[in-house]
Structures are given as C-alpha cells and as structure tokens.
Design a protein around this nucleic acid. Sequence first.
DNA 1: TATGAATGAGACTTCATTCAT
DNA 2: GATGAATGAAGTCTCATTCAT
Lengths: 189, 189, 189, 189
Amino acid sequence: MSEKSRPLRTDARRNCERVLAAAEAVLARDGTTASMRAVAEAAGVGLGTIYRHFPTREALFEGIMAARMFQLTDSSSELAEAADAGEAFFRFFTAVVDNAGRMRALAEALADAGVDVKAGTAEAAAALRTALETLQERAQRRGDLRPDLRLPETLALLAAMCLAAEHRRWEPAARDRTLAVLFDGFRPR
Amino acid sequence: MSEKSRPLRTDARRNCERVLAAAEAVLARDGTTASMRAVAEAAGVGLGTIYRHFPTREALFEGIMAARMFQLTDSSSELAEAADAGEAFFRFFTAVVDNAGRMRALAEALADAGVDVKAGTAEAAAALRTALETLQERAQRRGDLRPDLRLPETLALLAAMCLAAEHRRWEPAARDRTLAVLFDGFRPR
Amino acid sequence: MSEKSRPLRTDARRNCERVLAAAEAVLARDGTTASMRAVAEAAGVGLGTIYRHFPTREALFEGIMAARMFQLTDSSSELAEAADAGEAFFRFFTAVVDNAGRMRALAEALADAGVDVKAGTAEAAAALRTALETLQERAQRRGDLRPDLRLPETLALLAAMCLAAEHRRWEPAARDRTLAVLFDGFRPR
Amino acid sequence: MSEKSRPLRTDARRNCERVLAAAEAVLARDGTTASMRAVAEAAGVGLGTIYRHFPTREALFEGIMAARMFQLTDSSSELAEAADAGEAFFRFFTAVVDNAGRMRALAEALADAGVDVKAGTAEAAAALRTALETLQERAQRRGDLRPDLRLPETLALLAAMCLAAEHRRWEPAARDRTLAVLFDGFRPR
DNA sequence: TATGAATGAGACTTCATTCAT
DNA sequence: GATGAATGAAGTCTCATTCAT
C-alpha cells in the first residue's frame, strides 16, 4: 500500500490522535467532570469529530485510560529484568501511583484495574495486572517481599494509593514518605 | 417574641429526620452526584422541604458527613482507654474505613479530614483528626506503633483506604486482609 | 383566664397593624419584589397571620398603597384653603412625588391613580385624583396655572415623576431642580 | 448546486435573528420579567439555542436594549443639523420616549441612561446621553431652550417620561399633549 | 468527513400559597 | 387565631448528544 492510497485515513488518524492528546490534557486538568466541549476546544476540532472516533464520552475517556495503562505496562518490561527485584516492584508501584496523581481521572481507572469493570479498559487493566503480578512474584521468589502477600491485597492497596494521590495532589516527598510506610508492610519481617 | 432555639415541631423534626435518612441512603447509593430531587423522592417530601432544613445542597450533604464524622469521633472515646493501645488504634482506623465503604460520598469527606477543605465539615474533621492523633500517640508511647510514624502519613494512608473502600465496596474479609498488610507497616520492626 | 371580653379581636387588630407597618417598611426597602416571608419576619408574625388578614400578596400590597394614598389625600385638605393656590398645588404635587420616592413600590400605584387599574386601590386613587383636581382648578381660577392645562396631562406628568423618583432615589435638591423645570411648564406664559 | 460559501453560518444567523426578534417581542409584551422559555417558544427554538448566542439572560436583554439605544443615537445625527435646533431637540426627546413606550423593559434602560448602572448598556447609554447633550446645547445656543437648563434635569425628566410611557402605553395624541406641557418648561420665558 | 448549531432533560434554587399543629 | 412547615411550579443555566450543512 502506498502512502497516497488512503489520505482520508491519515487525516482521520491525525485527528484521532489530536483528540486523544487533548483529552488527556483536559482530563489531567479537570478530572472526570471534564466536558466534551473542553476537549474539542483543546484539540482544535469540532465536537462531531470527537463523536466520529468515540461513540460516547465514556468511550473517549476509557480510551485515554487504556492508553495510559498500556504505557505503564510497557514500562514494566525493563523493570522485570532489573537486578533488585524488590526495588523494581516498588518502583513500578510508585510509577503507577505517580501517574494517577499526575492525571486526575486516571486514578479511578487504575483503581478499577483490579476488577475490570469497564469494557473499554478491561484489556489494558488485565495487562497491567499481569505486569504487577510478574514483578511481585519475582520479588517474592528473591525474598524481597513477604511470601504471604497475595495479588488481591496488592491491587487493593495500589488502588487506594492511586485514589489518594489523585484526590489531593501528593508532593513527591510526601508521596515517598507515605509509600515508605506502606512498603514496610510489604517486606518480610 | 421568639424564644431562642425553640424546639422543632414534631412534624418538622420527623420530616427533617426523613430527609436526613433519605439523603444518607441516596448518598450511599449515588455518591456526591446525587440530585436533590432524588433525595426528595426518597424521603417522600417536596423539594422545598429539603431547602427549609438545609439552605443548599452542600449544606445538606456536608451536614450528613459532619454527623457521621462526629459519630466516629465519639466512638474513639472508649477506645482511648482500651488496654491494648495498638489494637485500639487499628480498630479505630478500621472503623473509619468501614464507614467510608458503607457510604459513597463519605469517603471524600473523610479523605479531606486531613486538610479541612470544606467549611461545613472542618470542625468535625478536626475532631476526627484529633481523635486519631490521640490514639496514635498513645499507641506509640506503649510501643505498639513505630515511633517514627507521623500524623500526615497516617492521615494520607487513612484517606487512601477510605477512598478505596468507597470506590469498590470491600468485603469485610478482604478489607481485613488488605488493612493487615498496611498495619504491618505501622508496627515497630 | 379571667377577662375574656374580646382578647382575640384586640390581638387580631394589633397583628393586622403590625403587618401593615412591617409591609410598608419592607416595600419601601425592597420594592415590589419583596417577599411575603420578608414581611412576616419584619412584622414578627407568622406567614399564616398575614394571609388571615390579606388573602393574597397583592391584596396586602394594594392595602398598603391605598392607605398611603388616603394619607396623601387627607394632607390636601388644608392645602385646599392655603392662600397661595398655585403654591398649594405645587406643594401637593411635590408631596406625592416625594412619597413615591421614599417608598419603592408606591410609585406604580400612584402612577396608576390616573386610571384605576387595580381593584384594591381604585377608591383611594379616585380620592387622590379628586384632590389633585380640586387644587388644580382652584389654582387655575386664581391664575396661578395655565388655563389650558387639563387633568389627564397633569396626571400623566405626576405619574412620570413618581416613577422616576422611585426608579432612582432623587435627592431633595435634585428633585426640586427637576420639578422646577416641569412646574414652569405649568405656569401661564 | 455549487454556491456553498457559508453552509453553517446561514442557519446560525437566522436563528440568532429569530431569537433577537422574539426576545424583542416578548420584552415588549412582558417586560423585564420575561422568561427565557417564553423567548425560546416565541422564537421556535430550544432553550439551549438562546444560550448559545447569549451567555446569560442579562446579556440577551441588555443586548437588545443597547441595540435600540444605538438606533436612537443614530437617529440624532441628522437632527443635529436640522434648521430648527429647538424642534430637533424636542423631536429627539419625543423619539426616545416613543421607543420606551413601544417596548416594555426598554424604559428602564433608557431611564438608566443618565447613570450607566448596567455594564451591558453603559456604552450605548453614554452615546445616547452625548447625543442628547449635543442637541440640547445647540438649541440653547440658538436661544430655543432656556439657558439655565442643565443636562441632569433633562435626563431626569427624560427618564420620567420614558418610565411613564412604558407604564401605561401612551396614545400618540396623549403623549404629545403631555410632552407639550413639559416642553413649555424647557423654553425661555 | 468535519463541523458546531441545536436540542432538551435535568441540575439547583426561590417563593406564593396551603394547611396541619 | 396564630404559626411556620410543606408544597411544587417556575426560574436560570449546563451539557451530552444528534444532525443539518
């Protein structure tokens, strides 16, 4: 296929990306109450263009969330081979919390990653869950995490931290102090 | 002419209570986005009746939150004299999380208890904070909690657990397993 | 428990007067948009008490207006025998405007005095109209007013001045300067 | 089949004009208390359409007032060069009163022209005031108006006539008779 | 295909009036 | 008789979604 064979598709894709980028920024700023008009204005496109690519407001927002979750999942790959398995797990956990804190509205999606409630984010959530599980089990095998720690609890605690980070933007230092306490609960005694 | 704070008429008090009960139920079901009409219908009263007792939507909802928070604070009194100071602290922490989990919309208020953002709940939040601090310091003096644990972290973690408990109703067993991990981080090593 | 002559009637009359006085004050302050609750609070009585004496909000307000108009009419009696007939006419005209300016909401009633639109003020308006006519005709007979001035025009101009005085509270000095121009149009050339 | 320079604009403009026309009619009929729904129904559009073109109720109504006031100001241009300066002044004065009488709700705006209370009409009011001042000063220089007449009084009297004309629709003949009396007060003695 | 104008349900709130206490 | 609690229609405004251009 040559590049000229599908000009419309190119346009459409470009617009779709602009919408996604703008929606991400708006969601980060305004949270889940962001209006479709705000997204359209930030993207520099019409309202109808958004609805062409995403059937409903929910579909758009879930699309954003899924993309972010895939990004996070990707970032776990290299951590899965880091020398310090415990540190890798904590780094990933922190990265997820950090993302929730940076983008209002992402927190809920991340919190839902443990249970897959939304159809739009189910696949991404499953991938994220698997990534966390992988890191956790490796750290447990290395003796860096308590062996009785199960994934449901880890996910619940991750969800909690994400929601809190979003609810009131955590300063990095405060975030580290808070997570440090939690992480001590993760370690073998 | 008008005596100070005359007792409410019986029918007025009954309706006020019905409004409060209905509002609590609706807040538990729908969260902070609950509409005034939903409350009115649940209470079986007219919209105006709600506004007679609570000047604004915020006043009603914050009033409920504050009441719950005062209830929680009250429940800490006897715990403050329990034999096992550490257990008392954990019980109170769990009770707060439990309340957040039972009523959507309470969680945010509890999460805000650390910072007092809303005027309507500031006093109740301060009381709750003090109660937690009292229990925590006693447990630390008894050696049941790690001495380097500071209130800001405790509050942040409490907020996180409340938000998570509300976000997805935690089963008591799951809640206990999750908090158990966290509480291990609170204990001296 | 002992004297049961006519306590209720006395109470009722006293309450009625309190309502009227309060309503006048509130109408002066808030204008025609004054709420029944504001009147009740100013009077120190319940809302029901107002409705006992006046069937509707309109009836109450028209009652006030009528009373004021009768007062004004009464004040014309002595002017009708003043030595300077022209001055008497101007004084009365000014007094009416002054009342409109002092009590928001009275202006409309006075402006309607020329046409009797409201049932509640018809009688009072007719009396006021007659009083003005009497003063005008006497002044015309004395040669103090232009002989071709007819009552409809006088009433229309009085209405205009009342509405303007209410619309933006006229300072006495400004009021006098403005009326002075108008009065020059009333005088014989 | 090829003429499509402005496909969307046409509809929007047509609706905007329909809204303006309907709003003028409704304002003329109901005065400042006219509801947005009444305007929407009169225009045959949805409520949202009005809010698309005018952000608030005030903006719509003040916009209409301002437009009318600018129209009036424009009409003064040719009068400013008329041979008979006094007649020009009186004609303009009458035109303003006439407009107030034709449209309920315009009267208040015109009455406020002397003081500029509303932000939305301030500019138009200032222009109208200047137009009146220009005509008045020219007429005074020509000796057609009494030299001691100052603008504040003229404005107060204009406001009064506008309010009265609106309050009870003046027939042209009655209006002329009434203004004739007033205008005599404006003339040199 | 992209646009954004139009829609209208639904949000909060006020207030004249009724009626149980 | 007096009170004021209750009612609910009506007001302004927002926003997800549809559809004509």
